[in-house]
Design a binder for these strands. Structure first.
Ligand SMILES: [Zn+2]
Ligand SMILES: [Zn+2]
Ligand SMILES: [Zn+2]
Ligand SMILES: [Zn+2]
Lengths: 133, 133
DNA sequence: AGGATTCATGTTATACTGTAACCTTTCTTG
DNA sequence: CAAGAAAGGTTACAGTATAACATGAATCCT
């Protein structure tokens, strides 16, 4: 099954890319299940774990959801802007922030290994539409 | 029950402070339940939501857990260092990071409302104990 | 006082998220 | 082919969170 392994990951990644927006694991399951009626949660979670490991997918901790990476850099630190109005998610990268964050954490001798940076708020479109949170 | 409202929040906050480490909602439930055998999840989640609203408690998104605030500033942006070895959590504050983060997000017209910053890694003690992750 | 109101909590039930453990299939290697 | 590795299938469950409605205590108003 060496082949089918990658295929499952590919299907999951394709589903996430088609959607664009963050998806819960079970939404992914529903998408990928289309045609494979026997798909169960562990399969999806395994594929997601592998994709995250490979840097192709990020998990939005504060949303319990997953998105395809849009940066295509290897193992970067993603910074997410999450619109609480429309659900849109933007992914950014800032070496400054990563460094500063490592510096702050390192002041107490802490060795950072993984960063979670998620900013909730309102996107430009929703602001201009005059939807004051 | 105007009084008991605050009391429940106080009990939850006390449990979190006694523990020091992050607790899951259900761990809090078990602690607070001591003597109140009829306590159910919604009560705890409601108290936690109120405490978070009041800035007394933070939720660690990447741990699905809660901690009492140790900064005692009103509505600050907490930065958490989470040791994956021993579970210790440190809370820090950095106006620089907050500003830079707002600047990055704001480049696309995004209006930040809530920041989630959590750094996983290894604390100084665990590093010196020679536990290379 | 007496009734309406409010609000925290109690209560029940359920939805959503995630994983452990074991089995089956396929592919690789010797 | 036998043995082993890797991916996925399958079952079952653990953990996290909330909806919806009932209850009881304080408050407000007349
Ligand atoms: Zn990315
Ligand atoms: Zn928006
Ligand atoms: Zn704090
Ligand atoms: Zn540690």
């Amino acid at each position: 099954m060496r082949q089918r392994g990658r295929n499952m990951q590919a299907e999951v990644l394709a589903a996430l890319r088609r959607c664009g927006a963050p998806m819960s694991a079970y939404e992914v399951l529903d998408q990928v299940r289309d045609g494979n009626p026997r798909l169960a949660p562990p399969t999806i979670y395994r594929a997601l774990a592998a994709l995250i490991e490979r840097g192709k997918v990020h998990r939005l901790e504060s949303l319990k959801a997953f998105v395809a990476c849009r940066c295509e850099r290897h193992r970067h630190v993603p910074i997410f802007s999450i619109c609480e109005e429309c659900g849109t998610v933007e992914e950014a990268v800032s070496r400054d922030i990563t460094n500063e964050l490592s510096r702050i954490a390192g002041q107490s001798g802490f060795a950072p290994a993984r960063h979670v940076i998620e900013v909730h708020g309102q996107c430009a479109r929703c602001e201009s539409k005059g939807a004051p949170a």
